[in-house]
């Protein structure tokens, strides 16, 4: 198994977004804003980066009249995140030995 550093998770906001989507089936844009200290623009930029990598998928809908943007992690994204976790764990192990 290759254990390389995934640049997608270098940024702390993208790391947080992906962590949230690993623990929750779906999460909406405002939910992310409630969880993290981030501006709208900054959050959208990072979400778009993850979307382009096909790590997350997005669906826009309406709840009543309010637009809602839901995100979830794709299989590709979940595998990439798992890889990244393995990489981090390995790094810690190497440091200890």
């Amino acid at each position: 198994m290759k254990r390389k550093y995934d640049k997608a998770f270098e940024n702390v906001i993208r790391l947080q977004v992906m962590s949230i989507l690993m623990a929750n089936e779906r999460f909406d844009f405002n939910g992310f804003k409630e969880m993290m200290e981030v501006s709208d623009g900054n959050l959208s930029t990072h979400l778009r980066t993850l979307e382009k990598l096909e790590y997350i998928a997005v669906e826009k809908s309406f709840v009543g009249r309010k637009p809602q943007t839901n995100y979830w992690a794709t299989t590709k994204g979940r595998l990439a995140f798992q890889e990244h976790l393995n990489y981090l764990e390995n790094l810690i192990k190497e440091h200890k030995s």
């Binding site: 790391l15 962590s19 623990a23 999460f27 969880m35 976790l85 810690i92 440091h95």
Partner: peptide, 15 residues
């Protein structure tokens, strides 16, 4: 890496 892992754990739990 320790900081990254603890950030991941915190976000998963809090969310």
């Amino acid at each position: 890496p320790e900081k990254a892992l603890s950030e991941i754990r915190l976000m998963m739990e809090r969310s």
